[in-house]
Nucleic acid binder design. Structure first.
Length: 417
RNA sequence: GUGGCUAUGGUGUAACGGUUAACACUGGAGCUUGUGGAGCUCUCAAUUCGGGUUCGAUUCCCGAUAGUCACCCCA
């Protein structure tokens, strides 16, 4: 089929290229089988832990009306940081940049028929239009875990516990990461008391978020631009709020938790407890992921508020974490097949297929090599794929149906069960 | 969106402005008519793209593209 791009597209690219590029689009990834195996394993671990806590998986389209994000994030974010376009029906459409508005929409839509508390999780791909760099791409997959309908701190405890256990399921040790907690609501009150003008709170919050990266002089300098009052945060109110949480987590054996009054999180919709999983490794000192309580978001859709707590963790940062802590090797990526059938010549193809079918019927995963290359090459091929056992089908085996299974690790041959 | 750095076969690297663009791994073929991981031989395959300077550009300059780092932003 001939590719005939539209005139405008052709003009823009300076004509039709003779050869198409094999590169993927800027900031997105191809997953070749070796990468996909890791990705799949990460998803499996995510699913496994969530389902242990009784969470149900949901899904939605990557397309959302742009207004869903306008309502919450403001014009600027929608225009500059998302993929937004006009469809053929003049509707403004956005490729979802995050899942929380979507899940809030879904929950709000069925609020009367859903049975609360709701424990939901999803692994959506999300898009953001920005300059890619390490750990920040234009498309990534993110586990979203949320609990709806629980006002009490027990929900915060559970959500953080899920996050903690996911880290443990990847083989992380307590000292590899720490959990920072804060109360958005309480710290906001305290900061507002330090401001001459309450409307400068967003500026102050952004500055505090960056405090760790600056020297104290720099910080004081920046602070003086925002408020004339001296900067003193004792975090008493927030401390009180987080103490209970920390106590309950300790009872669960989660001890790498610390109160961090400068933890802010970017989202405006957080209302109370917020938390962040922080990498303690010197080379990767950064927030891995986080979340918190957002009790007001569903009210955007009218009706009563539904309290909610949740978090999101991305596959890119998870991979980076596993790499820096050398945990990828522990993932136990499964091989593509249990048996590899080497076929000597086309004459034995039907017999080989039959044997493969029989093994598959018994629940084994079987690949058949129809290349008719030399047996040595076929075996090499199986070994390269990490397939543990091979079966050679030649004239004799095809005739009488008797064959041996050879283990490539030990080199031993055995009869099939 | 802004700025810095980078760009050579599939991968990792080499080449004072002048060579037939080199080496290793990988892929393919063979040494070896049905039992592998080794060795040897042969072989496919690259200067990101577009301009400029120059007798001559992989090399220097400009632009585009992509990667990366920082800023911005962080959903």
């Amino acid at each position: 089929m001939k590719n005939t791009p539209s005139k405008t597209l052709g003009d823009k690219q300076g004509g039709i290229p003779k050869k198409l590029s094999t590169e993927s689009y800027k900031g997105v990834r191809d997953f070749f089988p070796a990468d996909m195996a890791i990705e799949k394993k990460i998803f499996d671990i995510w699913r496994g832990v969530c389902e242990k806590y009784g969470y149900e998986e949901y899904g939605a389209s990557v397309l959302e009306p742009a207004e869903l994000y306008r309502a919450k994030s403001g014009e600027e974010i929608v225009n500059e940081q998302t993929y937004t376009f006009i469809d053929r029906g003049e509707r403004e459409v956005t490729l979802r940049p995050e899942m929380t508005p979507t899940v809030a929409r879904m929950v709000a839509a069925r609020r009367r028929e859903l049975t609360f508390p709701l424990r939901w999780y999803s692994i959506p791909n999300l898009f953001r239009y920005e300059n890619p760099q390490r750990g920040r791409l234009r498309e990534h997959w993110q586990l979203n875990v949320d609990i709806f309908g629980v006002e009490g701190i027990e929900a915060d405890v559970e959500i953080i516990s899920v996050a903690y256990n996911i880290m443990k399921a990847f083989g992380a040790k307590d000292e590899d990461f720490c959990i920072r907690i804060n109360s958005r609501h309480m710290i906001q009150k305290e900061i507002e008391n330090l401001l001459d003008d309450k409307t400068s709170y967003p500026k102050a919050a952004r500055l505090l978020d960056k405090k760790e990266k600056m020297s104290s002089e720099e910080f004081q300098n920046e602070w003086s631009k925002i408020s004339k009052k001296p900067f003193v945060i004792n975090g008493v109110m927030a401390r009180e709020r987080t103490n209970e949480l920390q106590g309950k987590l300790t009872l669960l054996g989660i001890k790498n938790v610390m109160f961090y009054p400068f933890l802010m999180r970017g989202f405006d919709y957080y209302t109370d407890i917020i938390f962040e999983i922080f990498d303690t490794n010197q080379e990767n000192r950064r927030a891995l992921f986080g979340g918190g309580r957002y009790d007001n978001l569903t009210s955007l859709f009218g009706g009563d508020k539904i309290p909610a707590v949740g978090f999101g963790m991305g596959d890119v940062t998870m991979r980076d974490f596993l790499e820096t802590h050398d945990l990828l090797k522990n993932l136990q990526i499964p091989t593509s097949a249990d048996y590899y059938i080497c076929v000597v010549s086309p004459a034995e193809a039907d017999a080989a297929t039959k044997i493969a079918e029989k093994l598959r019927a018994k629940g084994s995963r079987v690949a058949v090599d129809f290349s008719y290359k030399k047996i040595g090459d076929q075996i090499k091929n199986a070994d390269k794929r990490g397939i543990p056992e091979i079966i050679v089908i030649g004239e004799d085996e095809a005739k009488n149906g008797i064959y041996k299974i050879k283990n490539l690790k030990t080199g031993e041959e055995r009869n099939p069960e």
